[in-house]
Design a protein around this nucleic acid. Structure first.
Lengths: 119, 119
DNA sequence: CTAGAGGGTGGAGTGCACTCCAGGGTCAAG
DNA sequence: CTTGACCCTGGAGTGCACTCCACCCTCTAG
């Protein structure tokens, strides 16, 4: 698939895809004319990147974990440690979101405790 | 409390606090010498801002909801609608995080399905 | 009275993640 | 063989959320 199709199917701009390539997040083979050529799997990768990013991870963080996702030479223990760390971060974030959610839900019927905060 | 203490207790820099004031997120009374003076409640407000922000809301979004948090003239129905909308957004985000978490948890013992994504 | 910590302002600079642009090559259809 | 859609590159520009800076004022301790 070339960049236009990948752009359409992933929902990312061509510029964003080229930018990701510069950063090393994705790779492309080149056709003899210089055009980029992507395998289907890039869509999964981009979906993962998109999700992680929307959840508050920076591209640098996502980038750092790519070798892990792509199974490149790391020990099983190291992978496990990193994954457990990430899961802990995510669990904490879920906890925060639940707290915010409950806070908002409480306001649906309550008086607001922040009412005086601006003065 | 003056800006230095608020900075220390909130974990935000003085510059960030002045920046938030410019944006209208927080307000400060002024002492005769021009120094800012904040009530305790500002800490709650900043905590709320911090949390919402870390969860992916922009300052503009948070700003837009402040009148709501501070109970300024909105109908009960409107407040309820906005809150329900926000809760839905948060629930969706929790769902995404759970999916990512489960995905990572699965990798703890599995082979990686993204293994070919880079080629 | 002076030193040093803390406060004020306006404006420039930073890092991130794109986004846009100029200038140019490639390719299928008519 | 031209038109139009698509692709390439390098580099400048954008929006967000700060962060830093120069320069100046205020207050407390010694």
């Amino acid at each position: 698939m070339q960049i236009g199709e990948l752009s359409e199917r992933s929902g990312l701009s061509r510029d964003a895809l080229r930018f990701y390539e510069k950063r090393g997040l994705i790779r492309a083979r080149r056709r003899p004319n210089g055009y980029r050529h992507y395998p289907e799997a890039t869509l999964f990768l981009l979906d993962y990147v998109r999700t992680a990013q929307r959840l508050g991870f920076t591209l640098a963080e996502i980038e750092a974990e790519l070798p892990l996702l792509q199974g490149e030479g790391l020990t099983a223990e190291r992978v496990e440690t990193i994954l457990r760390g990430k899961i802990a971060v995510i669990d904490a974030r879920i906890g925060d979101l639940k707290a915010l959610r409950d806070d908002l839900a409480g306001r649906l019927s309550d008086v607001c405790p922040l009412i005086a905060a601006g003065q």
